[in-house]
Design a protein around this nucleic acid. Sequence first.
RNA 1: GCGGAUAUGGCGGAACUGGCAGACGCGAUAGACUUAGGAUCUAUUUCGAAAGAGUGGGGGUUCAAGUCCCUUUAUCCGCACCA
Length: 696
Amino acid sequence: MGAMFNWDAEVKTCEEDYYKWTQWIFLKLYEKGLAYRKEAPVNWCPSCKTVLANEQVVNGCCERCGSTVVKKDLTQWFFKITDYAEELLQGLKDLDWPEKTKLMQRNWIGKSTGGEIEFTAESGDKFKVFTTRADTLFGVSYVVLAPEHPLVKKLTSEKQRKAVENYIAETAKTNEIDRLSTAREKTGVYIGHNAINPINGKSVPIFAADYVLYSYGTGAVMGVPSHDERDYDFAKKYGLPITRVIKGVSGNDDLPFCDDGIVINSPGFDGMTSAEARKAIISELVKKGAGEHKTNYRLRDWLVSRQRYWGAPIPIVYCDKCGTVPVPVENLPVKLPYDVEFKPDGKSPLAKHEGFMNTSCPVCGGPARRDPDTLDTFVCSSWYYLRYPDAHNAKEPFNPEIINKMLPVDKYVGGAEHACMHLLYARFITKALRDMGYLKFDEPFKSLVHQGVILGPDGMRMSKSKGNIIAPDPYVEKYGSDTLRLYLMFGFSYTEGGPWNDDGIKAILKFLERIERLATRVKTLAVKPAKCGKEEKELLYAVNYAVQCVDRDMENFSFNTAVARLMELLNALTKYDGLENKNTEIFKESFLTFIKLLAPCAPHFAEEIWEILGNKNSVFLSSYPVCDKSKLVLDEIEVAVQINSKMKARILIPAEIDEEGIRKIIFADEKLSAEIGDRPIKKLIIVPKRLVNIII
RNA sequence: GCGGAUAUGGCGGAACUGGCAGACGCGAUAGACUUAGGAUCUAUUUCGAAAGAGUGGGGGUUCAAGUCCCUUUAUCCGCACCA
């Protein structure tokens, strides 16, 4: 199809000369404290003895064998992307990305400002809750800990132990999406222990409930039934008190009342607005040493360990004497062995490969074990754009001089499904490497476009199993590659895609054939005395209008309208060709301009026509057309005339005219003046060069 | 469930910041040329005989709404171990 790739710059993330540098990046992040280890739960299928993605857990069961899936804690590597949460959020402002994508990232990062408030359990243990609604602190009637919260096990009373343990076991079977569902009935269990509200010393019960996630905020929340819907449902169900502490300013303020209002029942703060009270109450707690102002992000650190075989091994060894030791850069890559057993016994495949696992400690030289996990493949894809400009550099992942000259990427094309993960990870890695001094830019992708997907004729994603695959080759064979290219450009909105159908492909072939016929005529035209009248002006207008539009459309990836503009120009050229008396010079020049505009869309075909017309060099060596704005200036313009916002007529008016002139023309028009009659004009709205609206 | 998007003629799709809805093309209809037409050319083509109506449904803002606001339905994408 005439697509061009620079195969010299090909990169393969799964090959040693690439993943060596993925491991290098891991080590750099580790060196800077941006890679760390902690315990985190995974979905575990006890029967398949493997870790499952959320996607592979269906109704709490393994999608393959149906066994109940449980949560299991593993020590895993994380990247500290949250250190960059604020910059990742702020940086979005200046990016030329689709607004919807930026919005999705903003929501994913999920900044919320509020405070952390410290409650003290009867045992003396302290825990913090994060809230954006400190103004409702006097309305707290219970607190909730995530079932995974370590204090739950510690504080649960003997009487409640059985119930709480059952509840924790149940929670281990649920997934996050269900836990956060607002439609699902709230569940929870009293742990038989209370905590003190620091603002008023009131004792409130502690619950464990799965609608609180241990991974977000502090893993604990305060329950204010009067001003939070979720808490309201929970309090109703468990018979907890509901105390109003916010009064609505106007209108309906039935409980639960979740908007801002005026604070009541809060000694010392009554009468304040919610916004004032939020600040004042936290400030009061700061004084007492029981709270602080705090900004929270929904974004979590990036878990990069995978208990999978296919990935870049994590370049870390564990030594009994020296502990966690990074593999020295000169020993990279840590190679992924190919002779691996895949017995499903719950261990990473690499863990069973003694040759891989056993190594010596780079520090003391004693026996050590490698990390058996591999890196999330997103790690590999989060920096690959840095590799292209210098794809086979054996000394370093990239040459800073070269990439700082060539990068960031001017235009990145990729699927919208990457909005919150790949695109965020790549931004994070860029910023981290910048802070290490390797990069002189802040963002990897200045401008972003999402391509649409061309679906099968049945409207479903193409897949072998559905048998709805459309392969390009038969079309190239039957219609030619440029016909297919043009059809792909013309038949779909680039960013939307849509179901394939070949109804229109013949029309494109027809379009190309018309061009060819016209080219043959242009070639044989006899030179006639030059004239430059109305028709020539129209033709030059059409040419320059097309140049302007095609330029803009190409820039915007609006290929379908660009091709439409080319079709319009061909229609104008054909129309001019029908004239008896032509200016062959202008005509031929216009046709050549048309071919140049066509060349990026139908390169082989345009080159051929270019040659037919007697040109010696390639069309791609000619200069690309530039719009001559002076040819777009019209003497007269057609504007729409409305009376009381209803379309009544279209009239020709001089391009340069004032309101008085327009009034004169309107009243000179028989139909319009009849319509207006003797009713006075209340208002005359003029949209220059477009429309006149007469309000009578 | 949460976050994001989409909905326009018989069809694919246009409409830049609110300003003539339906560009461009397919299909359809009629005609011309032709032994022939699934080639080519010309004309018409949102619906409706007309008044008029019309951008998924309902409401609103505005001189003016496909475009802005509220609400509702359907479909699609993402939800952190599919990558």
